[in-house]
Design a protein around this nucleic acid. Structure first.
Length: 166
DNA sequence: GCCAACGTTGGC
DNA sequence: GCCAACGTTGGC
């Protein structure tokens, strides 16, 4: 199993929205490196759900990949801001995964607090100038993030979690 | 609102 | 294939 971080602007789609909808297609990613990471995701992988452009910024909860990469629906929708006229249906350029909520953090793990965690010294999140919206986190980074808000990773792995059903 | 950083575009 | 211009991200 792999671990990831997904950025989202809470004004657009925050963790509470994920809880509300139950399953969300993670569409609209239009960066090749981020897309390649999406394609590496497998069902069951866990994601830190990060609020960007927020007050304050930080990880709001954990999400789970419930469907591995498949073609992003918006690339073929001329009405969408994410429409890509160069993407052909028989060779889709952009991919998305489906994610579901696993557990809301009891408190937001702020960017400031993340910077204090040694495991997070080297990450696209804390590195200046990196704007990737999807990237891998190490197991130790994932565990450190959960520990920082008092959650136990083992309970996620054994399924004994506060899961929000659809 | 500012602006640094960086990805993409398009002329050549 | 280079690279300047441009657009976007995202912290502050």
């Amino acid at each position: 199993m792999l671990y990831w971080l997904l950025k989202s602007e809470p004004d657009v789609f925050g963790y509470p929205d994920l809880v509300r909808v139950g399953v969300e297609p993670w569409n609209g990613v239009r960066n090749y490196l981020a897309r390649n990471y999406l394609r590496q995701m497998g069902a069951g992988d866990l994601c830190l759900f990060y609020h960007s452009n927020a007050k304050p910024n930080g990880v709001a909860g954990v999400a789970r990949v419930v469907r591995a990469a498949y073609p992003d629906n918006l690339q073929f929708d001329p009405e969408s801001a994410y429409f890509d006229p160069k993407s052909l249906p028989d060779n889709p350029r952009w991919s998305m995964v489906d994610v579901s909520p696993v557990v809301a953090f009891p408190t937001l793990l702020t960017l400031e607090a993340l910077r204090d965690l040694p495991d997070w010294d080297d990450s696209p999140l804390t590195r200046k100038g990196t704007r990737l919206s999807v990237f891998p986190v190490t197991e130790s980074q994932f565990r450190a993030a959960l520990a920082a808000v008092g959650l136990e990773p083992e309970k996620l792995e054994t399924g004994v979690v506060q899961t929000v059903n659809t």
